[in-house]
């Protein structure tokens, strides 16, 4: 079982590498019951889009 702190690191790392099956499952279980981390995951993707749009 993982806590929010570890879940946020994994949510960030999903943008950089494929998670292991164990990590992906633990993250899925955690985010299913944690709305704050679900929101954090969405924000990580939004940050990526905003950075592209941002690019004196």
């Amino acid at each position: 079982m993982i806590k929010c702190k570890q879940a946020t690191q994994l949510l960030s790392e999903t943008l950089d590498r494929p998670l292991s099956k164990k990590e992906a499952f633990a993250l899925k279980v955690h985010t299913a019951m944690c709305p704050a981390c679900r929101q954090f995951g969405k924000q990580m993707h939004t940050l990526r889009e905003l950075t592209q749009d941002y690019m004196d």
Partner: peptide, 14 residues
Amino acid sequence: NLNTTLYRARLRLR
């Protein structure tokens, strides 16, 4: 180190 740095950068930016 890279993954940790990217995580911290995203945390701070967020």
